[in-house]
Design a protein around this nucleic acid. Structure first.
Lengths: 253, 253
DNA sequence: TTTAAACTGGGTACGATGTACGGAGTATAA
DNA sequence: TTATACTCCGTACATCGTACCCAGTTTAAA
Protein backbone atom coordinates (compact mmCIF):
# COMPACT_ATOMS: atom_id res chain seq x y z
CA UNK A 1 0.00 0.00 0.00
CA UNK A 2 2.86 2.42 0.27
CA UNK A 3 3.38 3.91 -3.10
CA UNK A 4 5.47 7.00 -3.28
CA UNK A 5 9.11 7.83 -3.39
CA UNK A 6 11.37 10.73 -2.82
CA UNK A 7 13.92 10.48 -5.64
CA UNK A 8 16.63 12.71 -4.24
CA UNK A 9 19.66 10.54 -4.64
CA UNK A 10 23.13 11.82 -3.86
CA UNK A 11 23.26 14.90 -6.15
CA UNK A 12 26.88 14.45 -7.17
CA UNK A 13 26.35 10.80 -8.07
CA UNK A 14 23.12 11.52 -9.92
CA UNK A 15 24.80 14.26 -11.93
CA UNK A 16 27.61 11.96 -13.00
CA UNK A 17 25.07 9.46 -14.23
CA UNK A 18 22.87 12.05 -15.92
CA UNK A 19 25.63 13.66 -17.92
CA UNK A 20 27.56 10.43 -18.51
CA UNK A 21 30.65 11.51 -16.64
CA UNK A 22 31.74 8.15 -15.26
CA UNK A 23 35.38 7.40 -15.99
CA UNK A 24 35.55 4.33 -18.20
CA UNK A 25 37.33 1.34 -16.66
CA UNK A 26 40.24 -0.14 -18.59
CA UNK A 27 40.60 -3.49 -16.95
CA UNK A 28 38.21 -6.28 -16.19
CA UNK A 29 35.37 -7.88 -18.11
CA UNK A 30 33.17 -5.71 -20.29
CA UNK A 31 29.98 -4.73 -18.50
CA UNK A 32 26.99 -6.63 -19.79
CA UNK A 33 24.58 -3.75 -19.15
CA UNK A 34 24.52 0.03 -19.48
CA UNK A 35 23.00 2.72 -17.28
CA UNK A 36 20.62 3.59 -20.10
CA UNK A 37 19.59 -0.02 -20.39
CA UNK A 38 18.88 -0.31 -16.68
CA UNK A 39 17.00 2.97 -16.76
CA UNK A 40 14.93 1.95 -19.78
CA UNK A 41 13.97 -1.33 -18.15
CA UNK A 42 12.96 0.49 -14.97
CA UNK A 43 10.86 2.99 -16.92
CA UNK A 44 9.20 0.14 -18.80
CA UNK A 45 8.20 -1.50 -15.52
CA UNK A 46 7.03 1.72 -13.90
CA UNK A 47 4.96 2.64 -16.96
CA UNK A 48 3.30 -0.72 -17.10
CA UNK A 49 2.87 -1.58 -13.44
CA UNK A 50 3.42 1.58 -11.46
CA UNK A 51 5.93 2.65 -8.86
CA UNK A 52 4.72 0.00 -6.42
CA UNK A 53 6.01 -2.71 -8.71
CA UNK A 54 9.36 -1.03 -9.24
CA UNK A 55 11.83 -2.91 -7.07
CA UNK A 56 15.49 -3.53 -7.71
CA UNK A 57 14.82 -7.25 -7.90
CA UNK A 58 12.08 -6.70 -10.44
CA UNK A 59 14.33 -4.59 -12.67
CA UNK A 60 17.08 -7.16 -12.37
CA UNK A 61 14.68 -9.93 -13.35
CA UNK A 62 13.60 -7.92 -16.38
CA UNK A 63 17.22 -7.73 -17.46
CA UNK A 64 18.02 -11.33 -16.62
CA UNK A 65 20.66 -10.54 -14.00
CA UNK A 66 20.94 -10.79 -10.24
CA UNK A 67 19.59 -8.00 -8.08
CA UNK A 68 22.97 -6.84 -6.84
CA UNK A 69 24.30 -6.51 -10.36
CA UNK A 70 22.34 -3.29 -10.77
CA UNK A 71 24.50 -1.67 -8.11
CA UNK A 72 27.44 -1.92 -10.53
CA UNK A 73 25.64 0.65 -12.70
CA UNK A 74 23.66 2.75 -10.29
CA UNK A 75 24.53 3.76 -6.72
CA UNK A 76 21.04 3.00 -5.44
CA UNK A 77 17.36 3.19 -6.14
CA UNK A 78 17.12 6.91 -5.44
CA UNK A 79 19.67 7.74 -8.11
CA UNK A 80 17.97 5.35 -10.50
CA UNK A 81 14.75 7.32 -10.05
CA UNK A 82 16.64 10.53 -10.81
CA UNK A 83 17.92 9.06 -14.06
CA UNK A 84 14.47 7.72 -14.93
CA UNK A 85 12.96 11.15 -14.43
CA UNK A 86 15.46 12.90 -16.63
CA UNK A 87 15.12 10.29 -19.34
CA UNK A 88 11.39 10.88 -19.65
CA UNK A 89 11.82 14.66 -19.46
CA UNK A 90 14.01 14.28 -22.52
CA UNK A 91 11.09 12.97 -24.54
CA UNK A 92 8.94 15.99 -23.71
CA UNK A 93 6.70 16.74 -26.70
CA UNK A 94 7.29 20.13 -28.32
CA UNK A 95 4.59 21.14 -30.72
CA UNK A 96 5.11 24.50 -32.43
CA UNK A 97 2.38 27.01 -31.63
CA UNK A 98 1.40 30.12 -33.55
CA UNK A 99 -0.14 32.60 -31.21
CA UNK A 100 0.41 34.71 -28.15
CA UNK A 101 1.92 33.71 -24.82
CA UNK A 102 -1.42 32.35 -23.68
CA UNK A 103 -1.70 29.88 -26.52
CA UNK A 104 1.90 28.82 -25.98
CA UNK A 105 1.53 28.43 -22.25
CA UNK A 106 -1.65 26.42 -22.68
CA UNK A 107 0.22 24.15 -25.06
CA UNK A 108 3.00 23.73 -22.52
CA UNK A 109 0.39 22.72 -19.97
CA UNK A 110 -1.17 20.20 -22.33
CA UNK A 111 2.23 18.75 -23.19
CA UNK A 112 3.07 18.38 -19.53
CA UNK A 113 -0.23 16.64 -19.01
CA UNK A 114 0.53 14.30 -21.87
CA UNK A 115 3.88 13.38 -20.36
CA UNK A 116 2.32 12.68 -16.98
CA UNK A 117 -0.33 10.49 -18.54
CA UNK A 118 2.31 8.54 -20.48
CA UNK A 119 4.36 8.03 -17.29
CA UNK A 120 1.96 8.38 -14.36
CA UNK A 121 4.61 7.28 -11.86
CA UNK A 122 6.30 10.67 -12.34
CA UNK A 123 3.46 12.18 -10.33
CA UNK A 124 4.55 10.22 -7.30
CA UNK A 125 8.23 11.01 -7.35
CA UNK A 126 9.03 14.04 -5.26
CA UNK A 127 10.61 16.73 -7.36
CA UNK A 128 11.94 19.27 -4.93
CA UNK A 129 15.47 19.97 -6.01
CA UNK A 130 15.12 17.88 -9.16
CA UNK A 131 18.04 16.24 -10.96
CA UNK A 132 19.45 18.87 -13.29
CA UNK A 133 20.03 16.53 -16.19
CA UNK A 134 19.97 17.31 -19.89
CA UNK A 135 16.32 16.30 -20.21
CA UNK A 136 15.07 18.63 -17.50
CA UNK A 137 17.25 21.50 -18.67
CA UNK A 138 15.93 21.25 -22.21
CA UNK A 139 12.34 21.08 -20.97
CA UNK A 140 12.80 24.11 -18.74
CA UNK A 141 14.39 26.06 -21.57
CA UNK A 142 11.47 25.21 -23.83
CA UNK A 143 8.89 26.19 -21.25
CA UNK A 144 10.54 29.53 -20.59
CA UNK A 145 10.35 30.39 -24.28
CA UNK A 146 6.57 30.57 -23.91
CA UNK A 147 6.79 33.49 -21.50
CA UNK A 148 9.93 35.22 -22.76
CA UNK A 149 9.56 38.80 -23.85
CA UNK A 150 6.01 39.39 -22.66
CA UNK A 151 6.94 41.80 -19.89
CA UNK A 152 7.68 39.58 -16.91
CA UNK A 153 10.83 39.74 -14.84
CA UNK A 154 13.07 36.69 -14.81
CA UNK A 155 11.80 35.67 -11.40
CA UNK A 156 8.20 36.13 -12.51
CA UNK A 157 8.85 34.01 -15.58
CA UNK A 158 10.02 31.19 -13.36
CA UNK A 159 7.08 31.67 -11.02
CA UNK A 160 4.60 31.62 -13.89
CA UNK A 161 6.01 28.38 -15.26
CA UNK A 162 6.05 26.88 -11.79
CA UNK A 163 2.44 27.94 -11.26
CA UNK A 164 1.24 26.31 -14.47
CA UNK A 165 3.31 23.18 -13.92
CA UNK A 166 2.12 22.96 -10.35
CA UNK A 167 -1.47 23.20 -11.46
CA UNK A 168 -1.03 20.50 -14.10
CA UNK A 169 0.74 18.25 -11.62
CA UNK A 170 -2.04 18.53 -9.09
CA UNK A 171 -4.86 18.20 -11.57
CA UNK A 172 -3.42 15.21 -13.41
CA UNK A 173 -2.53 13.56 -10.17
CA UNK A 174 -6.09 13.83 -8.92
CA UNK A 175 -7.34 12.29 -12.13
CA UNK A 176 -4.80 9.49 -12.05
CA UNK A 177 -5.43 8.82 -8.38
CA UNK A 178 -9.12 8.50 -9.13
CA UNK A 179 -8.50 6.09 -11.97
CA UNK A 180 -6.11 4.00 -9.89
CA UNK A 181 -8.48 3.76 -6.97
CA UNK A 182 -11.21 2.51 -9.29
CA UNK A 183 -8.87 -0.09 -10.76
CA UNK A 184 -7.53 -1.32 -7.48
CA UNK A 185 -10.76 -1.29 -5.52
CA UNK A 186 -13.17 -2.18 -8.27
CA UNK A 187 -15.51 0.48 -6.90
CA UNK A 188 -16.60 3.14 -9.38
CA UNK A 189 -17.29 6.70 -8.34
CA UNK A 190 -20.98 6.07 -8.75
CA UNK A 191 -20.92 3.00 -6.51
CA UNK A 192 -18.89 4.91 -4.00
CA UNK A 193 -21.42 7.70 -3.76
CA UNK A 194 -24.27 5.23 -3.64
CA UNK A 195 -22.58 3.48 -0.74
CA UNK A 196 -22.16 6.75 1.10
CA UNK A 197 -25.57 8.25 0.51
CA UNK A 198 -27.57 6.27 3.07
CA UNK A 199 -24.95 6.91 5.69
CA UNK A 200 -24.80 10.61 4.98
CA UNK A 201 -28.55 10.83 5.24
CA UNK A 202 -28.45 8.98 8.52
CA UNK A 203 -25.87 11.46 9.77
CA UNK A 204 -28.20 14.24 8.76
CA UNK A 205 -25.72 15.97 6.52
CA UNK A 206 -28.41 18.04 4.80
CA UNK A 207 -29.13 19.77 8.10
CA UNK A 208 -25.64 19.97 9.50
CA UNK A 209 -23.87 20.67 6.24
CA UNK A 210 -26.39 22.30 3.90
CA UNK A 211 -23.89 23.80 1.47
CA UNK A 212 -21.72 20.72 1.32
CA UNK A 213 -24.67 18.47 0.67
CA UNK A 214 -26.16 20.77 -2.00
CA UNK A 215 -22.88 21.28 -3.84
CA UNK A 216 -21.83 17.68 -3.35
CA UNK A 217 -25.02 16.48 -4.98
CA UNK A 218 -24.56 18.85 -7.91
CA UNK A 219 -20.99 17.69 -8.42
CA UNK A 220 -22.07 14.07 -8.17
CA UNK A 221 -24.68 14.53 -10.89
CA UNK A 222 -22.18 16.30 -13.10
CA UNK A 223 -19.83 13.35 -12.70
CA UNK A 224 -22.46 11.05 -14.09
CA UNK A 225 -22.43 13.09 -17.26
CA UNK A 226 -19.71 12.74 -19.84
CA UNK A 227 -17.24 15.54 -19.42
CA UNK A 228 -15.62 15.12 -16.04
CA UNK A 229 -11.85 15.32 -15.97
CA UNK A 230 -11.31 16.99 -19.35
CA UNK A 231 -13.74 19.75 -18.45
CA UNK A 232 -12.40 20.24 -14.97
CA UNK A 233 -8.84 20.42 -16.21
CA UNK A 234 -9.65 23.09 -18.78
CA UNK A 235 -11.58 25.14 -16.19
CA UNK A 236 -8.68 25.26 -13.79
CA UNK A 237 -6.15 25.96 -16.49
CA UNK A 238 -8.20 28.89 -17.76
CA UNK A 239 -8.31 30.33 -14.25
CA UNK A 240 -4.55 30.04 -13.91
CA UNK A 241 -3.95 31.66 -17.29
CA UNK A 242 -6.45 34.40 -16.41
CA UNK A 243 -4.43 35.03 -13.30
CA UNK A 244 -1.24 35.50 -15.26
CA UNK A 245 -3.09 37.72 -17.73
CA UNK A 246 -4.26 39.88 -14.84
CA UNK A 247 -0.67 40.28 -13.68
CA UNK A 248 0.38 41.34 -17.18
CA UNK A 249 -2.47 43.83 -17.34
CA UNK A 250 -1.32 45.60 -14.17
CA UNK A 251 2.13 45.90 -15.69
CA UNK A 252 0.89 47.70 -18.76
CA UNK A 253 -0.63 50.59 -16.82
CA UNK B 1 13.59 6.07 1.46
CA UNK B 2 10.04 5.37 0.44
CA UNK B 3 7.88 7.83 2.18
CA UNK B 4 4.38 8.19 0.91
CA UNK B 5 1.11 6.47 1.37
CA UNK B 6 -2.20 6.14 -0.27
CA UNK B 7 -4.68 6.21 2.58
CA UNK B 8 -7.66 4.68 0.83
CA UNK B 9 -8.64 2.03 3.28
CA UNK B 10 -11.79 0.02 2.80
CA UNK B 11 -14.40 2.81 2.56
CA UNK B 12 -17.08 1.02 4.52
CA UNK B 13 -14.70 0.20 7.35
CA UNK B 14 -13.25 3.70 7.41
CA UNK B 15 -16.70 5.21 7.57
CA UNK B 16 -17.67 3.07 10.52
CA UNK B 17 -14.61 4.24 12.36
CA UNK B 18 -15.05 7.88 11.37
CA UNK B 19 -18.61 8.18 12.54
CA UNK B 20 -18.18 5.84 15.49
CA UNK B 21 -20.66 3.27 14.22
CA UNK B 22 -19.03 0.15 15.60
CA UNK B 23 -21.49 -2.00 17.48
CA UNK B 24 -20.35 -2.12 21.06
CA UNK B 25 -19.43 -5.59 22.27
CA UNK B 26 -21.30 -6.92 25.30
CA UNK B 27 -19.07 -9.73 26.32
CA UNK B 28 -15.37 -10.03 26.96
CA UNK B 29 -12.84 -7.81 28.71
CA UNK B 30 -13.08 -4.06 28.41
CA UNK B 31 -10.77 -2.73 25.71
CA UNK B 32 -7.73 -0.99 27.10
CA UNK B 33 -7.50 1.45 24.19
CA UNK B 34 -9.84 3.47 22.00
CA UNK B 35 -9.78 4.29 18.32
CA UNK B 36 -9.30 7.94 19.19
CA UNK B 37 -6.39 7.08 21.42
CA UNK B 38 -4.69 5.04 18.73
CA UNK B 39 -5.34 7.79 16.22
CA UNK B 40 -3.99 10.49 18.53
CA UNK B 41 -0.82 8.52 19.18
CA UNK B 42 -0.31 8.00 15.47
CA UNK B 43 -0.82 11.70 14.74
CA UNK B 44 1.66 12.57 17.48
CA UNK B 45 4.28 10.35 15.88
CA UNK B 46 3.61 11.56 12.34
CA UNK B 47 3.75 15.20 13.45
CA UNK B 48 7.04 14.76 15.25
CA UNK B 49 8.85 12.29 13.05
CA UNK B 50 7.04 12.19 9.74
CA UNK B 51 5.22 9.51 7.82
CA UNK B 52 8.42 7.47 7.41
CA UNK B 53 8.51 6.84 11.14
CA UNK B 54 4.86 5.89 11.32
CA UNK B 55 4.74 2.13 11.59
CA UNK B 56 2.24 -0.01 13.38
CA UNK B 57 4.94 -1.24 15.72
CA UNK B 58 5.96 2.31 16.51
CA UNK B 59 2.39 3.31 17.37
CA UNK B 60 2.01 0.20 19.50
CA UNK B 61 5.22 1.01 21.37
CA UNK B 62 3.97 4.54 22.00
CA UNK B 63 0.86 3.05 23.60
CA UNK B 64 2.71 0.34 25.49
CA UNK B 65 0.97 -2.55 23.75
CA UNK B 66 1.94 -5.23 21.25
CA UNK B 67 1.84 -4.45 17.57
CA UNK B 68 -1.04 -6.77 16.80
CA UNK B 69 -3.19 -5.24 19.48
CA UNK B 70 -3.82 -2.24 17.23
CA UNK B 71 -5.69 -4.49 14.84
CA UNK B 72 -8.38 -4.89 17.49
CA UNK B 73 -9.21 -1.22 16.99
CA UNK B 74 -8.36 -0.51 13.38
CA UNK B 75 -8.65 -2.83 10.38
CA UNK B 76 -5.25 -1.84 9.00
CA UNK B 77 -2.83 0.98 8.46
CA UNK B 78 -4.74 2.42 5.52
CA UNK B 79 -7.87 2.93 7.59
CA UNK B 80 -5.79 4.35 10.41
CA UNK B 81 -4.51 6.99 8.00
CA UNK B 82 -8.09 7.80 7.00
CA UNK B 83 -9.01 8.37 10.63
CA UNK B 84 -5.86 10.42 11.23
CA UNK B 85 -6.72 12.67 8.29
CA UNK B 86 -10.24 13.31 9.43
CA UNK B 87 -9.12 14.01 12.97
CA UNK B 88 -6.81 16.79 11.84
CA UNK B 89 -9.41 18.18 9.43
CA UNK B 90 -11.60 18.58 12.47
CA UNK B 91 -9.18 21.05 14.01
CA UNK B 92 -9.22 23.26 10.93
CA UNK B 93 -8.83 26.87 12.03
CA UNK B 94 -11.78 29.13 11.23
CA UNK B 95 -11.05 32.78 11.62
CA UNK B 96 -13.95 35.11 10.89
CA UNK B 97 -13.25 37.47 8.01
CA UNK B 98 -14.93 40.76 7.19
CA UNK B 99 -14.70 41.38 3.50
CA UNK B 100 -15.61 40.12 0.07
CA UNK B 101 -15.21 36.61 -1.32
CA UNK B 102 -11.61 37.32 -2.17
CA UNK B 103 -10.62 38.12 1.39
CA UNK B 104 -12.50 35.07 2.62
CA UNK B 105 -10.98 32.75 0.04
CA UNK B 106 -7.51 34.04 0.79
CA UNK B 107 -8.13 33.33 4.46
CA UNK B 108 -9.25 29.80 3.59
CA UNK B 109 -6.02 29.34 1.68
CA UNK B 110 -3.95 30.60 4.60
CA UNK B 111 -5.80 28.37 7.04
CA UNK B 112 -5.21 25.37 4.82
CA UNK B 113 -1.56 26.27 4.68
CA UNK B 114 -1.44 26.49 8.45
CA UNK B 115 -2.97 23.05 8.82
CA UNK B 116 -0.48 21.54 6.39
CA UNK B 117 2.43 23.15 8.22
CA UNK B 118 1.15 21.83 11.54
CA UNK B 119 0.80 18.31 10.09
CA UNK B 120 3.15 18.10 7.12
CA UNK B 121 2.54 14.37 6.68
CA UNK B 122 -0.93 15.22 5.33
CA UNK B 123 0.77 16.41 2.17
CA UNK B 124 1.99 12.91 1.49
CA UNK B 125 -1.23 11.05 1.99
CA UNK B 126 -3.13 10.67 -1.25
CA UNK B 127 -6.54 12.27 -1.00
CA UNK B 128 -8.42 11.11 -4.04
CA UNK B 129 -11.76 9.96 -2.77
CA UNK B 130 -11.04 11.16 0.76
CA UNK B 131 -12.67 9.73 3.86
CA UNK B 132 -15.96 11.54 4.26
CA UNK B 133 -15.74 11.92 8.00
CA UNK B 134 -17.17 14.65 10.18
CA UNK B 135 -13.94 16.63 10.10
CA UNK B 136 -13.71 16.79 6.33
CA UNK B 137 -17.42 17.54 5.94
CA UNK B 138 -17.23 20.48 8.33
CA UNK B 139 -14.14 21.82 6.61
CA UNK B 140 -15.76 21.57 3.18
CA UNK B 141 -18.89 23.29 4.42
CA UNK B 142 -16.81 26.11 5.85
CA UNK B 143 -14.81 26.54 2.67
CA UNK B 144 -17.91 26.67 0.51
CA UNK B 145 -19.28 29.51 2.61
CA UNK B 146 -16.50 31.70 1.22
CA UNK B 147 -17.81 31.41 -2.33
CA UNK B 148 -21.53 31.08 -1.66
CA UNK B 149 -23.75 33.68 -3.26
CA UNK B 150 -21.18 35.40 -5.43
CA UNK B 151 -22.59 34.21 -8.72
CA UNK B 152 -20.99 30.84 -9.28
CA UNK B 153 -22.86 27.66 -10.06
CA UNK B 154 -22.64 24.83 -7.56
CA UNK B 155 -20.17 22.99 -9.73
CA UNK B 156 -18.08 26.12 -10.17
CA UNK B 157 -18.06 26.66 -6.42
CA UNK B 158 -16.62 23.21 -5.94
CA UNK B 159 -14.11 23.77 -8.72
CA UNK B 160 -13.00 27.10 -7.25
CA UNK B 161 -12.41 25.55 -3.83
CA UNK B 162 -10.58 22.64 -5.41
CA UNK B 163 -8.43 25.04 -7.40
CA UNK B 164 -7.40 27.03 -4.35
CA UNK B 165 -6.84 23.93 -2.24
CA UNK B 166 -4.87 22.31 -5.01
CA UNK B 167 -2.67 25.35 -5.29
CA UNK B 168 -2.03 25.46 -1.56
CA UNK B 169 -1.31 21.75 -1.45
CA UNK B 170 1.26 22.01 -4.21
CA UNK B 171 2.90 25.16 -2.93
CA UNK B 172 3.20 24.03 0.67
CA UNK B 173 4.42 20.65 -0.42
CA UNK B 174 7.21 22.20 -2.43
CA UNK B 175 8.24 24.28 0.55
CA UNK B 176 8.11 21.34 2.93
CA UNK B 177 9.98 19.10 0.51
CA UNK B 178 12.69 21.71 0.25
CA UNK B 179 12.97 21.97 4.02
CA UNK B 180 13.06 18.21 4.47
CA UNK B 181 15.72 17.73 1.86
CA UNK B 182 17.91 20.28 3.60
CA UNK B 183 17.40 18.54 6.93
CA UNK B 184 18.05 15.06 5.67
CA UNK B 185 20.94 15.83 3.36
CA UNK B 186 22.53 18.67 5.26
CA UNK B 187 22.98 20.47 1.95
CA UNK B 188 21.50 23.94 1.80
CA UNK B 189 20.07 25.39 -1.40
CA UNK B 190 23.10 27.61 -1.69
CA UNK B 191 25.54 24.71 -1.36
CA UNK B 192 23.51 22.77 -3.85
CA UNK B 193 23.71 25.50 -6.45
CA UNK B 194 27.38 26.00 -5.75
CA UNK B 195 27.99 22.32 -6.31
CA UNK B 196 26.13 22.42 -9.61
CA UNK B 197 27.59 25.60 -11.03
CA UNK B 198 30.98 24.28 -12.17
CA UNK B 199 29.33 21.31 -13.81
CA UNK B 200 26.74 23.41 -15.57
CA UNK B 201 29.45 25.65 -16.90
CA UNK B 202 31.39 22.65 -18.10
CA UNK B 203 28.30 21.42 -19.91
CA UNK B 204 28.03 24.80 -21.53
CA UNK B 205 24.53 25.50 -20.32
CA UNK B 206 24.78 29.22 -21.08
CA UNK B 207 25.12 28.41 -24.77
CA UNK B 208 22.78 25.44 -24.99
CA UNK B 209 20.17 26.75 -22.57
CA UNK B 210 20.41 30.56 -22.58
CA UNK B 211 17.00 31.26 -21.08
CA UNK B 212 17.26 28.56 -18.45
CA UNK B 213 20.66 29.75 -17.34
CA UNK B 214 19.63 33.43 -17.24
CA UNK B 215 16.40 32.81 -15.34
CA UNK B 216 18.00 30.17 -13.16
CA UNK B 217 20.66 32.60 -12.05
CA UNK B 218 18.08 35.28 -11.29
CA UNK B 219 16.01 32.86 -9.24
CA UNK B 220 19.12 31.68 -7.43
CA UNK B 221 20.04 35.21 -6.42
CA UNK B 222 16.51 35.90 -5.25
CA UNK B 223 16.68 32.81 -3.06
CA UNK B 224 19.67 34.19 -1.29
CA UNK B 225 17.58 37.14 -0.24
CA UNK B 226 15.11 36.95 2.61
CA UNK B 227 11.64 36.50 1.19
CA UNK B 228 11.58 33.15 -0.56
CA UNK B 229 8.68 30.90 0.27
CA UNK B 230 6.34 33.48 1.80
CA UNK B 231 6.67 35.71 -1.23
CA UNK B 232 6.32 32.90 -3.73
CA UNK B 233 3.23 31.58 -2.00
CA UNK B 234 1.52 34.96 -2.05
CA UNK B 235 2.38 35.49 -5.72
CA UNK B 236 0.80 32.23 -6.80
CA UNK B 237 -2.24 32.70 -4.59
CA UNK B 238 -2.87 36.14 -6.07
CA UNK B 239 -2.72 34.67 -9.57
CA UNK B 240 -5.25 32.00 -8.65
CA UNK B 241 -7.59 34.54 -7.06
CA UNK B 242 -7.19 36.81 -10.07
CA UNK B 243 -8.24 33.89 -12.21
CA UNK B 244 -11.42 33.39 -10.25
CA UNK B 245 -12.08 37.12 -10.33
CA UNK B 246 -11.77 37.05 -14.11
CA UNK B 247 -14.36 34.29 -14.26
CA UNK B 248 -16.73 36.34 -12.11
CA UNK B 249 -16.19 39.38 -14.32
CA UNK B 250 -17.31 37.51 -17.44
CA UNK B 251 -20.46 36.46 -15.61
CA UNK B 252 -21.46 39.98 -14.80
CA UNK B 253 -21.62 41.09 -18.44
C1' DT C 1 -23.42 -22.07 39.59
C1' DT C 2 -21.76 -23.73 35.61
C1' DT C 3 -20.67 -23.30 30.86
C1' DA C 4 -19.99 -21.64 26.48
C1' DA C 5 -19.61 -17.79 23.65
C1' DA C 6 -17.48 -13.57 22.53
C1' DC C 7 -14.24 -10.89 23.23
C1' DT C 8 -9.26 -9.22 24.61
C1' DG C 9 -3.97 -8.89 24.18
C1' DG C 10 -0.16 -10.33 21.72
C1' DG C 11 3.67 -13.83 20.11
C1' DT C 12 5.29 -15.94 16.02
C1' DA C 13 5.96 -16.14 11.27
C1' DC C 14 5.81 -14.88 6.23
C1' DG C 15 6.93 -12.49 2.27
C1' DA C 16 8.23 -8.09 0.75
C1' DT C 17 11.78 -4.29 0.52
C1' DG C 18 16.75 -1.81 -0.19
C1' DT C 19 21.33 -2.87 0.12
C1' DA C 20 26.10 -4.10 2.82
C1' DC C 21 29.40 -7.53 2.38
C1' DG C 22 32.34 -10.59 0.42
C1' DG C 23 33.58 -14.33 -2.72
C1' DA C 24 34.42 -16.20 -7.29
C1' DG C 25 35.47 -15.52 -11.96
C1' DT C 26 37.67 -12.61 -15.94
C1' DA C 27 40.14 -9.35 -18.70
C1' DT C 28 44.08 -6.39 -19.06
C1' DA C 29 48.38 -3.62 -17.84
C1' DA C 30 52.79 -4.30 -16.08
C1' DT D 1 53.30 -14.57 -16.08
C1' DT D 2 51.17 -12.16 -12.56
C1' DA D 3 48.97 -8.60 -9.99
C1' DT D 4 45.22 -5.63 -10.37
C1' DA D 5 40.90 -3.95 -11.30
C1' DC D 6 37.01 -5.05 -12.67
C1' DT D 7 32.70 -8.20 -13.40
C1' DC D 8 28.37 -10.79 -11.53
C1' DC D 9 25.82 -12.16 -7.73
C1' DG D 10 24.47 -15.29 -3.45
C1' DT D 11 23.76 -14.56 1.25
C1' DA D 12 22.26 -12.00 5.04
C1' DC D 13 20.03 -8.25 7.78
C1' DA D 14 16.79 -5.00 9.34
C1' DT D 15 12.23 -3.24 8.64
C1' DC D 16 7.63 -3.31 7.02
C1' DG D 17 2.30 -4.74 7.20
C1' DT D 18 -0.32 -8.27 8.80
C1' DA D 19 -2.31 -13.48 8.75
C1' DC D 20 -2.82 -16.82 12.04
C1' DC D 21 -3.39 -18.71 16.34
C1' DC D 22 -3.64 -19.30 21.28
C1' DA D 23 -4.21 -18.02 26.04
C1' DG D 24 -6.66 -15.34 29.20
C1' DT D 25 -11.05 -12.60 30.61
C1' DT D 26 -15.68 -11.20 30.94
C1' DT D 27 -20.56 -11.97 30.57
C1' DA D 28 -24.99 -13.98 28.82
C1' DA D 29 -27.32 -18.14 28.76
C1' DA D 30 -28.37 -22.70 30.69
Amino acid sequence: MNSEYSGAGDPAKSLELLWGLQSKPTRGPKPALTVDGVCAAAVRIADAEGLVALSMRRVADELGVGAMTLYRYVPGKAELLDVMLDSVYAEFPRRPVDGDWRAKLREVALENRELYLAHPWMLYVASSRPPLGPGLMAKYEYELEAVEGIGLTDVEMDAAIALVNGYVHGAVRSAVDAKLVIQSSGITDKDWWLAHEPLLEKIGDAQKFPLASRVGTAVGEEFDAAYDSEHGFAFGLDRVLDGIAALLATKQL
